Amino acid sequence: MSRPSDLRFRATTAFQRYLANPITRRLPLQTVLETTGRVSGLPRQTPVGGSRVGDSFWLVSEFGEKSQYVRNIKANPAVRVRIRGRWHTGTAHLMPDDDPVARLRHLPRGNSAAVRALGTRLLTVRVDLDA
């Protein structure tokens, strides 16, 4: 990773971790992805933007496999997603062959614009929701 993109990654993740995420994950209608911490084993909740399509929930990680929630998914793909205030269990799948820029065109605009602007290694994630 180049120095400017590394700096962008560190600045963005610090802002999200310490300011944005603690506030937004408490908003009742904010979509939240809950993974299991790969080291701690504790639930980790991350506000995300994405969209439910049938029995799947789609999102794009702005920093790909460097994102903590993606690293957690690699260790344990069992997740929960809070959509419109209701929790759903599911299994997350990393989709490296999917075109994340094309995928963002079908996801909520505000979040997609931020992911495109700040992201350095976009990666599509699909969560297959349990019935």
Rank of each mutant, 00 (worst) to 15 (best):
M1F: 06
D6R: 13
D6Q: 15
R8G: 03
R8F: 00
F9A: 00
T12P: 04
T12S: 12
T13G: 07
T13H: 08
A14V: 10
Q16N: 08
Q16Y: 14
Q16M: 15
Y18V: 06
Y18D: 01
L19D: 00
A20Y: 13
A20I: 10
N21G: 06
N21H: 14
P22V: 04
I23S: 03
T24M: 13
L27C: 08
P28H: 04
L29H: 10
V32C: 09
E34K: 13
T35Q: 12
T36Y: 01
G37P: 00
R38E: 10
R38H: 11
V39C: 01
G41W: 06
G41R: 13
G41L: 12
G41M: 06
P43W: 10
Q45R: 15
T46I: 11
G49P: 01
G50K: 07
S51F: 03
V53K: 04
V53A: 03
D55C: 00
S56Y: 04
F57Q: 09
L59P: 00
V60H: 05
S61Q: 03
E62A: 15
F63Q: 10
G64M: 07
G64R: 07
Q68K: 08
Y69S: 01
V70C: 03
V70K: 06
I73R: 11
K74L: 13
N76L: 07
P77Y: 01
P77M: 05
P77F: 01
A78L: 11
V79N: 09
I83D: 08
R84Y: 07
G85E: 10
W87E: 12
W87R: 14
W87F: 05
W87T: 11
H88L: 11
T91E: 08
A92D: 09
A92L: 07
L94P: 03
L94H: 11
M95H: 09
M95D: 15
P96S: 04
D99K: 04
V101P: 00
A102R: 14
R103F: 01
L104I: 03
R105E: 15
R105W: 02
R105A: 15
H106F: 02
L107F: 09
P108W: 04
R109W: 10
R109Y: 01
G110P: 05
G110S: 09
N111F: 11
N111T: 14
S112T: 04
S112I: 05
A113E: 05
A113R: 13
A114W: 09
V115G: 02
V115R: 04
V115T: 14
R116N: 04
A117T: 05
L118P: 02
L118Q: 14
G119M: 12
R121W: 01
T124H: 05
V125I: 14
R126M: 08
R126G: 02
V127C: 03
V127T: 10
V127L: 05
D128S: 10
D128H: 08
L129A: 09
D130Q: 14
D130N: 15
D130C: 05
A131Q: 14
